[in-house]
Design a protein around this nucleic acid. Structure first.
Length: 200
DNA sequence: CGAACGATTAGCT
DNA sequence: GCTAATCGTTCGA
């Protein structure tokens, strides 16, 4: 499988499909970033999504064209990066929760004021800080400067589980992670210890 | 117009 | 594991 730059057409699928396909992709912002190891999918018909109640000033970019960034402020503190998908006006997106640092590591350490590689980009707020994401990026195309998103170079085993930090739709397992990665923001629950009868 | 609440993180127990 | 920090956004009165 050969890497190529992802374009808007690559984001036309459902958010859960796009989120799973992004595991192993490489995200760079101004040449700084790494391999995406954890994502979450959100959709308009999804009580846990900010797009659930329709367009507002805050979530407007999520209703824009696919293949663009949607950035929101989390807990009044953090900037979190999403990729808009599906179709314009739908309100679907993929939250980038963790990446494995590959490029510009010293720059990311400086921005994060932290040496520990494992904690540099292991969480949506940490990704935002390490890549210097701000509201300015919201609505920007992902195939234009400063963004570069490369398709995954091969298949990776993917874990699924409930999304983090939400109170609604806990039963929807739209969190995806690269199996075995040490850069996940949290461990995935062991499927064999969960309540029986569930299907991902 | 005021109150409540996060798609979180760091730091301490 | 628990909680404070911290503030933009949303929603009800």
């Amino acid at each position: 499988m050969k890497c190529r730059l992802l374009r808007p057409d690559d984001f036309l699928g459902n958010s859960e499909e796009v989120a799973r396909d992004l595991i192993g992709a490489v995200l760079l912002v101004d040449g700084v970033g790494g391999r995406i190891v954890e994502t979450e999918a959100y959709d308009r018909a999804d009580p846990a999504s900010y797009s659930y109640s329709g367009p507002t000033p805050r979530n407007l970019a999520m209703f824009g064209p696919p293949g663009r960034a949607y950035v929101y402020r989390s807990y009044g503190i953090h900037w979190c990066l999403n990729f808009v998908c599906r179709e314009e006006g739908h309100g679907a997106g993929v939250l980038i929760r963790a990446i494995e640092p590959l490029e510009g590591i010293e720059m990311m350490r400086k921005r994060r004021k932290l040496d520990d590689l494992r904690l540099l980009c292991s969480g949506p707020g940490r990704v935002g800080e390490a890549l210097a994401i701000t509201r300015e990026h919201s609505g920007a195309r992902l195939d234009r400067k400063p963004f570069q998103v490369f398709s995954r170079d091969r298949d990776y085993p993917v874990l699924t589980g409930p999304r983090i930090g939400i109170s609604k739709a806990q039963e929807v397992h739209w969190r995806f992670g690269m199996s075995g990665s040490r850069f996940l923001s949290r461990r995935f629950p062991d499927p064999f210890t969960e309540a029986a009868g569930r299907s991902d």
